[in-house]
Nucleic acid binder design. Structure first.
Lengths: 112, 112
DNA sequence: TTTATATGCAACTTTTTGGTTGCATTTTCG
DNA sequence: CGAAAATGCAACCAAAAAGTTGCATATAAA
């Protein structure tokens, strides 16, 4: 299982960042394409603007979103590269699982 | 406003379960195909067997693994269906992002 | 039937997380 | 300039998470 190590270490924080409904909602919102401000993203949320800010920083630490300043507002946009890497991690696991099952099946059939 | 599709919302707990390095390692280990016992899975880990047991239950609550008893040992195996759903969730987000970008690009070109 | 193996259960400690409130700072605009 | 808008910062809180230790229980094996 050495081949997975690197992917795992880098992907775990991404999964952790996505593992909260509020944050997943933010990510889904940012799919709209255009960067959005904190106030925009906090509009309609069940928690305060400061809570949203914290969540955005968690996502930023995992490199899922990137923020930049424009005038008096802080805009955030999606970083699809990290999402792609997370998907790749799941792909790897699924594929190894498939391979292992195939080997097991072959071994069992070989015994009979 | 979009209350986030049920599909995406149901993925948050799965991501949360995968969002821990120790647990992601367990998942990777269980890719081997054959179910493994707690003692096996705890071998070589940096934490105690009880900690591993807790992690396995977290994964089980998220339906990422399933456990069953054989003799005096508790065996755990991977539940690839949940992993596939998580992957699908990432696919959805990426695709929505792609579509949004395409629309933005079209809009900008239409203005010129 | 002892004995060793594999696990379960429960109490407890320490960090981390998610959230809040209050106030300061920066920028825009009339 | 002065007020409104958009954030930033810091202290504080409660609950959940991660991990430990100690002991009980069940099963396999000698």
């Amino acid at each position: 299982m050495p081949p997975l190590s690197a992917e795992i270490r880098s992907s775990a924080p991404v999964f952790a960042a996505l593992g909260d409904e509020t944050r997943l909602r933010l990510v889904a919102r940012l799919c709209a394409g255009e960067p959005q401000s904190i106030t925009q993203l906090a509009a309609g949320a069940q928690v305060t603007r400061q809570a949203i800010t914290k969540h955005l920083h968690v996502l930023a630490d995992a490199r899922v979103v990137t923020g930049f300043r424009r005038g008096r507002e802080q805009l955030w946009e999606l970083n699809t590269r990290q999402l792609a890497e997370a998907r790749h991690c799941l792909d790897l696991i699924s594929r190894q699982w498939g391979d292992a099952l195939a080997r097991l099946k072959a071994a069992v059939e070989g015994e009979s």
